[in-house]
């Protein structure tokens, strides 16, 4: 894994597949839509993945496998046959949703169902994809990332697109540039997307007096990148003080973050691409 990470190419450069993690949640539908848009934009193939959670199946096999309804609080016996049927039905629904979404744009697509631990399966599948798209969390509305998303973000070696309930790859793109390698890749991805489909691009240079090269140099570097491809955008320097403005809910658009800033995901609920 370390080897691939070292020679991580920009996703867009040979983007051939975009993986989307699917369950039946509204967020995953949003993730699907965003991924499909991205696939169309990058001329990539869309790959849907539904993981039948092995933990759930194990649970059903246990004699005390019971669930407590989250609204009714009633206790129900779980049954592995029923669960399997349930998961199969879910897979069909998801596949149909995917077919619809893909047909609209249109993009090439595949869909597969795997059985196993969700995070592990997603990570494994993401190895052969240019990017992974998934929803922020399960059913409950909340600021924080769901446990699956959190694990994936922590471990994935590919850019991860994270969608809340209100989905879609909204514009403009705001990219946070810190001068790290990940930040370089993030900037490249942002520029690539903007060039392919102009919709507004903002580049924020992270002024961190504690570490790293001075902000002016980073700004100059970023601006050079921008002018290279003929974009008019000028990078702006921001510090901790301006961060709340950037993360303001009304500030619609997609945020592109370098991997080291994944913590910001707990303060921003809009669509995000995290580039490791």
């Amino acid at each position: 894994m370390a080897a691939t990470q070292a020679k991580q190419p920009a996703a867009a450069e040979h983007a051939d597949r975009i993986l989307v993690a699917l369950d039946a949640s509204p967020q995953s539908v949003a993730a699907l839509r965003a991924a499909a848009e991205l696939a169309a934009l990058l001329e990539a193939e869309l790959e849907g993945l539904f993981v039948e959670d092995i933990n759930l199946l194990h649970l059903c096999g246990l004699p005390f496998g019971r669930e407590v309804g989250s609204y009714t609080a009633s206790v129900r016996q779980l049954n592995d046959r029923a669960m399997e049927r349930n998961l199969r039905a879910l897979a069909i629904v998801i596949r149909e949703a995917m077919e619809r979404e893909a047909a609209q744009l249109p993009v090439r697509w595949t869909f597969q169902v795997r059985r196993g631990a969700v995070v592990a399966e997603l990570l494994a599948a993401s190895q052969s994809a240019a990017m992974l798209s998934l929803g922020r969390a399960g059913r409950r509305r909340r600021q924080t990332l769901g446990s699956v998303a959190e694990s994936v973000v922590r471990q994935c070696s590919r850019p991860v697109l994270i969608l809340g309930e209100e989905g879609g790859l909204t514009r403009p793109l705001s990219v946070l540039y810190t001068g790290s390698e990940a930040a370089d890749r993030a900037l490249r991805l942002a520029i690539d997307l903007e060039v392919r489909n102009p919709g507004g691009l903002r580049v924020w240079v992270w002024d961190d007096p504690a570490a790293g090269p001075p902000a002016e140099r980073l700004q100059a570097h970023a601006n050079a990148r921008l002018t290279e491809v003929g974009l008019q955008t000028v990078a702006a320097v921001i510090g901790e003080r301006e961060l709340p403005d950037l993360l303001d809910k009304r500030n619609k658009g997609t945020l592109i973050l370098p991997g080291e800033h994944s913590a910001l995901l707990s303060r921003w609920v809009g669509p995000t691409i995290l580039v490791p």
Binding site: G61, G65, E67
Partner: peptide
């Protein structure tokens, strides 16, 4: 472990981070 099921929440014994197979 506290697990999320399609219809709610459930508890299951864990081993090495995974639910103990039956």
């Amino acid at each position: 472990a506290l697990l999320r099921t399609p219809g709610g929440l459930a508890f299951a014994p864990l081993r090495e981070g995974e639910v103990l197979p039956p």
